[in-house]
Design a protein around this nucleic acid. Structure first.
Lengths: 336, 336
DNA sequence: ACGATTGTCCAAAACGTTTTGGGAGTCAAG
DNA sequence: CTTGACTCCCAAAACGTTTTGGACAATCGT
């Protein structure tokens, strides 16, 4: 309701002094400072955000782009993560705006709009591709950003990611140790880093074990994609006895496929993401998930440090992946 | 990179003319307009958002508060809804910021910060209480807002809500028609409008059928709350044969309780929200959900119209609730 | 030929802050 | 009495737009 001018007038002080008093400068006497603060409290003065932003040349905003294509938006903890991130950012005076990508526009367009319009101080990118044009753009503009997921960019950039390679390698080796020899992989679109990373992990384990790597089918990272990919693998002359799936959603699709072929309930399966749904499928879906608590806060912290100018190399977090032991990964292994 | 001044200078025009040319005023000749537009395109000029906001006295932002307490954040479609809302708002030049409530602060504090700091043009409120201090505050400030859920506020305000009363009444009558006589209700915290509304629906149906309304237990709107409430009802001397639950999450908790008492699998149950999880429980959870597509767009539209000054009475949407017929609501009815 | 109208353009003000670069006044030291 | 340091305060500039209220020619109606 009140602006600085009115507040200053009512106090018989200059705008400058009031402003500095509120900011706690030593420049203004303690008694004046207190007087100003009380008056400000009384009228409920809050600086006009737009004015401050203009003057300080900071938008006080961070944007996160929400991919619309394919498969909704990440796991359901995603909103919790965003919420945690926003909460942490708020303590530094930054707000988080969500920027969904309308159809007909690319994520790059969104970045351009936000960056060139000086609407944000930094950006949060999710669902990185191996070669990600958003990353290249932001790097060329010199805007701080953090990605959820790595890229193959030559220039390093801040990220938080799960070690999909190690996780999927370990899961595959676990199947091998349990006696499986025909271990299939249901892969996500390989242009996404996470999908490629996880596929590489499976492949590496297979090669280490001296097994063929032809039991691999790719699909959209959705229930339907997993379903179709699973059917494809089940048509092979030599069926897999275990399936390592790039995502839980795909794994759930695969479970549906398994139910439709006979003997399918004999096939072990594991997914990744730890969807709450997985606890209720039959059999309950074993899965994997990135370790680490308060991921949202981590993202926020990296963003703030990136804005603060810390070099990208120091702003990279690779988290281990842990196995969530339910039931679907240990179907009895039929004699070959 | 470029601001209006530089662009004007390079064109040999005044700032005024360039600004108006870009805004398409008839004030500037077609040829000049084109010349300006081309130059702007070439250097990738975008008006500085903070400057425009200050000058136009509009924040170009809408905030949505994300409740942290209890039970995460609404149904999982919630993020989809936000995404749709943000997308629609973006076409009007507004961005959506998410404002989680840090512990130690109330949602009212958040509203205050956003409103008094002129950070937003409007607000989106979710999880309304029957007597909601946020609503009262925003009304007193005259800030446009839309709620997800009604309140008992005397002054009307824009909202979108599902008709929980009708939905729960209908569900209860459905059980009655199927022969049930001891129909219990697992209620959410009654200070929330939705919980109270649904409870009233159940109660109304029971009274219409001439049945006692004592089979009602309240709990937190979480799995655990539903579990405990269900146990409470199962301890009654005369057990319910059917349960109408305020939310799916509570219903899933109730299912767990039913599994733990013998004969529990004979009890019919229905929830509300249509959680994806519900499709995988055993038995698959029958549920209810608000009808209507593109809810996010509806919210955005109401917000824009509220900002435009339309009276609240014309900005209220009450959606019917539809029954989602899975399996859990028709357990065989034992002879009484 | 004259005022009125129209078509282009612009200088300056305004939005509400933060920050720069001092200006008084006081006090102590020289 | 001057000088410098220190304390407390302030006027004015700056941030980059949009908008107000014309200015100046050219065209039109009579």
């Amino acid at each position: 309701m009140a602006n600085l001018k009115q507040l200053a007038q009512s106090l018989g002080l200059s705008i400058t002094t009031v402003s500095r008093a509120l900011d706690g400068y030593a420049d203004v006497s303690a008694v004046t400072r207190e007087r100003v603060r009380e008056a400000a409290d009384k009228v409920g003065y809050r600086p006009n955000a737009s004015a401050r932003r203009l003057r300080k040349q900071r938008a006080e905003l961070v944007a996160v782009t929400l991919p619309s294509d394919p498969g909704h938006i990440g796991p359901p903890h995603f909103l919790d993560m965003l919420s945690g991130c926003a909460e942490h950012l708020a303590t530094a005076g930054l707000n988080l705006v969500i920027a969904p990508v309308p159809r007909g526009e690319s994520e790059l367009d969104i970045c351009r709009r936000f960056v060139d319009g000086r609407r944000v101080d930094a950006m949060l990118l999710v669902r990185t591709k191996r070669k990600d044009e958003r990353v290249e753009f932001l790097q060329s503009r010199g805007i701080p950003f953090v990605t959820n997921g790595r890229t193959e960019s030559l220039m390093p950039h801040p990220y938080i990611d799960g070690d999909g390679f190690a996780g999927f390698r370990a899961a595959t080796l676990r199947f091998h140790a349990a006696g499986h020899r025909r271990i299939g992989h249901i892969a996500g679109p390989q242009e996404y880093y996470f999908a490629h990373d996880r596929c590489r992990g499976w492949r590496a384990a297979m090669e280490e074990c001296g097994l063929a790597t032809d039991l691999c089918a790719e699909g959209a990272p959705l229930e339907q994609g997993g379903y179709l990919a699973a059917l494809e693998l089940l048509r092979q002359p030599s069926r897999p006895t275990a399936l390592v799936c790039a995502t839980d959603e795909m794994a759930i699709g695969a479970l549906r496929a398994l139910r439709e072929v006979d003997g399918g309930n004999q096939i072990s399966i594991v997914g990744h993401d730890d969807l709450p749904m997985g606890a209720f499928t039959s059999p309950p879906l074993s899965t994997m998930r990135m370790t680490g608590e308060h991921l949202g806060a981590s993202f926020a912290s990296l963003l703030l440090r990136a804005i603060g100018g810390e070099p990208a190399e120091e702003l990279q977090e690779l988290h281990a992946i842990e196995f969530v032991d339910r039931d679907s990964h240990r179907r009895p292994l039929r004699a070959a």
